[in-house]
Structures are given as structure tokens and as C-alpha cells.
Design a protein around this nucleic acid. Sequence first.
DNA 1: CGGACTATGTGAATTCATTCACAAGTTACT
DNA 2: AGTAACTTGTGAATGAATTCACATAGTCCG
Lengths: 220, 220
Amino acid sequence: MAADDGKKKISESTIQRLSLYYRVLSILEKENIKTISSKELAKHEKLTPAQVRKDLSFFGSFGTRGLGYPVTELKNRIATILGLDREWKVAMVGVGNIGSALVGYKEFQRHGFSINMIFDNDQRKIGSNHKGILVSDIANLKEGLRENNIDIVIIAVPATVAQYIVDDIVEAGVSGILNFAPINLKVPENVILRNENMSMELEHISFSLVNRESITATKE
Amino acid sequence: MAADDGKKKISESTIQRLSLYYRVLSILEKENIKTISSKELAKHEKLTPAQVRKDLSFFGSFGTRGLGYPVTELKNRIATILGLDREWKVAMVGVGNIGSALVGYKEFQRHGFSINMIFDNDQRKIGSNHKGILVSDIANLKEGLRENNIDIVIIAVPATVAQYIVDDIVEAGVSGILNFAPINLKVPENVILRNENMSMELEHISFSLVNRESITATKE
DNA sequence: CGGACTATGTGAATTCATTCACAAGTTACT
DNA sequence: AGTAACTTGTGAATGAATTCACATAGTCCG
């Protein structure tokens, strides 16, 4: 069971699916369901049972043959794997439309991400209170992040300035960044950068609708 | 049905990357750059030149050997492929934190997605104006979507009610749905459903940070 | 106009991810 | 205790996506 130090390469998609499992398991736990099979779990997220088992097997063997997986325990194990068993200190840079919405997004808190700093460059916002958090001047970004030991920064600023801000964040020693600006940012390779591009999903829908039309045209 | 005319199967990730190319090309066009090689294009999004060429080759051959791709033309071609050369009528369901932010999100407009209906169930919001759009009663969802020929609906409601709303949307004949609620929704297979799960990316960062620690610990 | 470059487009090779299939462990029931 | 029914965990097989490598086709410049 302690086969941890072997550097297995876990695929991106496996990690994404762990998030999904975690979500489902949380719901099942609330419904007081004690045990779930890979088959059932798979059905909840439209995956195959084999995939569920393979994903989990990268991290250990959590199930009982003939029975399935213990819901609460598996949920907790996944929480540990994903690092959700701790509180992450998060800062938001930019409280425009998106930034402001994310500060109030309950789902983040629920998973252990607590946003407790906000930065902006708008003089009208600086010093004001946003959902109980004081908005700091972005001029103090670097020191602010350092002094508060921020783990992760969420960037919700215009694409044009995002790179400058990232540079500061990196200099401040933060090594997890979630970027909402629609641009590809450069960071040193020891920094984890993930991008959230909301237009992309809409464009995917658009693509699918257009390509589906040939089928629709021939009538159902 | 009829349309099995040797249709190439385009992978999810190719489509995602087309969005990225589109984004880069738009910027290049503004910078008045006329031509770009697969190598340069790849560099902008940290991909390989071969991947860029392969992706594009699924849709035709747009480049000139020895020179590269014509920026504006390629951009327009991709727009056509992705269906961004038209105006999509979008409705937002739920104007809480997230919904409200997305209604004001400029990036959507820029890509041809114009949100021109909003639905909510909160009496205090119904009838009010949100960034110039009248908030309608969600009780009228089905008729509203039909009457206004909505193409795509964005769901930003609590997970607990999301499925009911999706059922209505589907019944209204809408066949593109972007879901922000953290739950897996069921739709008929002719409906395009995509999910945007913002916690997922944060959890990915969290995972990477935790797993990086072992490396950081042993290395330098 | 010709030769040196440059860069595409694409089958073939390779790498990576998913699914299959089955031995092995566990339960439930008689 | 024996057996039928489940379900995991995992190598092996399959399938998908990425990268390689090169023939092909154009550019550029003296």
C-alpha cells in the first residue's frame, strides 16, 4: 500500500476525473449511502467501470471485492490525493465582473479554497469591502502575497496586463496560479499554472452545433 | 441516419486547440502580422509545430509551403469551422454570482455569443434590468426560449435544481447547453452539453502542488 | 533564373489512454 | 461449510492522439 515514492505519471484526465468522483462521493455521503461499486460510480459521470477502477488503482486499492468502495473513506482518500484535506490560502487579483463573482463562489470554500485577499488597481475599489474582504492596492501585490503566505492566486484581469501581474506573483514566491485572462502566460516550470477559458467551452458547443447541422438537415 | 458521408472524426482536444489558434491569430492580426508559421503559432500556446499542422490539416490545407499561414485568412477559416462567423442567441438562466458576471463578460460578445435573455426565479430580480437585459420569470422559460429562437443556454443555478431546468430547456428545443452547476446533467444525445467546472481547475492546482512537494523535497 | 532555404502536409512510428477480460477476494445464503 | 453471485485490481489488448520524418512545393535573393 505504501507504493508512494515510485514516480507514476498520472494523466491530466485522471486528475480531472478524481474531482468528479469526489463530487459524486460527497453527494452520496450526504444521502447516507455507505458503499458504491465502480459500475455505479461510473454511471454517475458517464464513464466506464474499468476507467474508475484504473484511475483509483494508481493511488492504492481502496475497494472491497464483491462489495465496492466505502463511500466516506474513498471520498476522504481522494480529498487527500487532491490536497483538499487542507485549507489553501487564495488571493484574487482583479475584482471586475468575473473576479468579483468568484470571490463569492461558495464551491471554492467548500473544497478548502478560501479567498482571503483581493487586489485591484481601481482607486474606487481599493480600501472598500468586497464580501467581507478588504480590497488592497495592486501596487502592494508582491508584499501582500508574501506577508500572508498565499498559496494560490486567481487572476481575473484584462489579458493585456496579465503577464506583468503573473511576473509579480511568481516573484512573490507563489507557485499555484489559476488564470482567467484569455491569454497564454509564461511562468517558470516550477510554477503550476492552469487556465480557465470560458469562451472555449462555448466555442466547442458552437462547433458541435454547426457540425451537427448536416445531420439535423436530413431530419430526424 | 443519412449523414455518414465519410465524416472525419475530430478529437475534443483538436477543437479546443482551434479556439487557442483563433485567439492567437486575432492578436496577431491586430498587430498587423501577415503570416505565421506552424512553429511560431505553436510557440504561442506551448504546442508542437506538428500538432498545429495536423490539427489544421483535418479541415483543409491553408498554408503556403516555405512561407507559413496567412494570419487573417486562417483566422477567418477557423472562425467558420468553429461557427464563430455567425451570431448565436444565448440565454442565461440564473443571475446569481456567476450568471451575473457572465452576462457582462465581454469575451462572449467578442466571439459572437450575445446573451439577450435572462431568467431567474427570484421575485426581487424578475422585471429588473441586468446590464440592459430584462430579467424574466423562470416560470416562462420554455416559451421564452422558443419565442426568441435561443440557440444556446447557459445554466448558472444551484446544482439541486439544474436537472429540472435542463429538462425544460431541452423540451423548448434548444440544443446547446453550457452548464456551470457542479453536477452531471442528463440530456438526450442530440443535445450538446458542455460543463464548466471551475473548482476542478483549482483542485488540479492543489493536486499538483501537493505532488510537487515530494519532488521539491528530494530535489535541490 | 537557379540554388539555398523554408515550411507545409501527411503517412508511419510512437507514445499515451482506455477498455477488455479474468484471477482472486468477499459477501450472502442455504 | 459450500456455493453462487459480486466486484475489485490489473496485466494485456486495443484504440486514440501525438510526434516523427520526409517528399513536396513554395520563397528569397543574388
